[in-house]
């Protein structure tokens, strides 16, 4: 099986991908583990784990829990830091010919600006801003929940970074439309949505007259968040004109079609990579097969037909 004729080629208003299927930040590392399972270079792109200015150790307490329809994570952005990424991970991605988008995260606007500059100097083709991080200057408020803070952040990054800029929105807001509009106004080339939903897992086990309590507070992802993600993508698609990358609970071909119907131009797969390490590549083949079998000219025609 091989992808033929470029029928899956996806043009995100300037960023051209082999196909619309990417893997989501934090679920694919730096792609170094997955090439035992698939040909990673077949993917539209991989989005790296969030990279911060300095290495981060992440959280100390229990970091994951499985839920009825997905999982909760509280990893705490453990990552190698930008210096080590550029020195050790970037050359491998390049050598293996893997298209990638760098996901970046900071805790102050200055940190994001600094990261943007470094990405610019290193000619990183595309970055995705993770704005679901608390702004340490304003306490626990995330950049991505405050229109003004987000507008300023994206504008500042835009000034310092000439490549393709994606802003990844958090669903934990009252109006995701307003946040999307702010991102577009500030100069984003695309929006990706959604990041994880705030969620909690409590597992109780009564043994020997005592409750054993396993608690994880963090971000909810996986199949259970698909309806929320579809809603966000659909609402955003009505108010912004930049491309939208749909994320949330995708694990089969039909999920991808639903995201196209809602207005996504491309998609990312997250949690499902854990359940099926070969899922992303499999879905590329399935999508291609679907287009050919049903007699569509290409992906663009399929998307037009699907659009609600």
């Amino acid at each position: 099986m091989a992808v033929i004729n470029n029928i899956l080629q996806t043009n995100l208003n300037g960023l051209i991908l082999k196909n619309p299927i990417m893997t989501a930040s934090g679920t694919y590392g730096y792609a170094d583990e997955y090439d035992d399972f698939i040909n990673v270079e077949n993917l539209g792109a991989i989005v790296t784990k969030a990279i911060s200015l300095k290495p981060r150790e992440g959280n100390k307490h229990t970091r994951i829990a499985e839920t009825e329809a997905g999982m909760i994570n509280s990893i705490g952005l453990e990552n190698v830091g930008i210096e080590k990424f550029l020195k050790e991970k970037l050359p491998v991605l390049k050598e293996k010919n893997i298209d990638f988008i760098m996901n970046i995260a900071g805790s102050t606007q200055e940190e994001y600006t600094e990261l943007a500059k470094i990405c610019n100097e290193n000619k990183i083709k595309a970055i995705e801003l993770n704005v679901s991080c608390p702004n340490v200057k304003t306490g626990c408020i995330e950049f991505g929940v405050d229109e003004k803070a987000l507008y300023n952040l994206v504008s500042e990054v835009r000034k310092n970074y000439k490549g393709y800029l994606i802003v990844k929105l958090t669903p934990n807001v009252t109006s995701i439309e307003n946040i999307g509009i702010a991102a577009e106004k500030a100069g984003a080339n695309a929006i990706s949505a959604i990041n994880t939903i705030k969620g909690m897992s409590i597992k109780l086990n009564y043994i020997n007259g005592r409750f054993n309590k396993a608690v994880v507070q963090g971000g909810y992802s996986g199949i259970g968040i698909k309806p929320a993600a579809l809603s966000a993508v659909s609402k955003l698609s009505k108010v912004v004109s930049i491309p939208i990358i749909g994320i949330g609970g995708i694990e089969k071909l039909n999920d991808i079609l639903e995201f196209f119907a809602a207005g996504a131009q491309a998609i990312q797969i997250g949690t499902a990579n854990f359940t099926h390490p070969d899922i992303a590549e499999k879905l590329i083949f399935e999508l291609e097969e679907y287009i050919l079998q049903n007699g569509f000219k290409d992906l663009n025609e399929l998307k037009r037909e699907l659009r609600i």
């Binding site: 590392g29 583990e33 992440g58 994951i64 499985e66 453990e78 949690t271 990579n273 854990f274």
Partner: peptide, 25 residues
């Protein structure tokens, strides 16, 4: 330890290890 990815990418199953005088994940 409870595992999500079981191949080292999600960092969900980390523990503290002594590495010389340092503690590492």
């Amino acid at each position: 330890k409870l595992m999500a990815c079981s191949i080292g990418v999600c960092r969900g199953c980390v523990i503290d290890i002594k590495h010389g005088t340092k503690t590492v994940n």
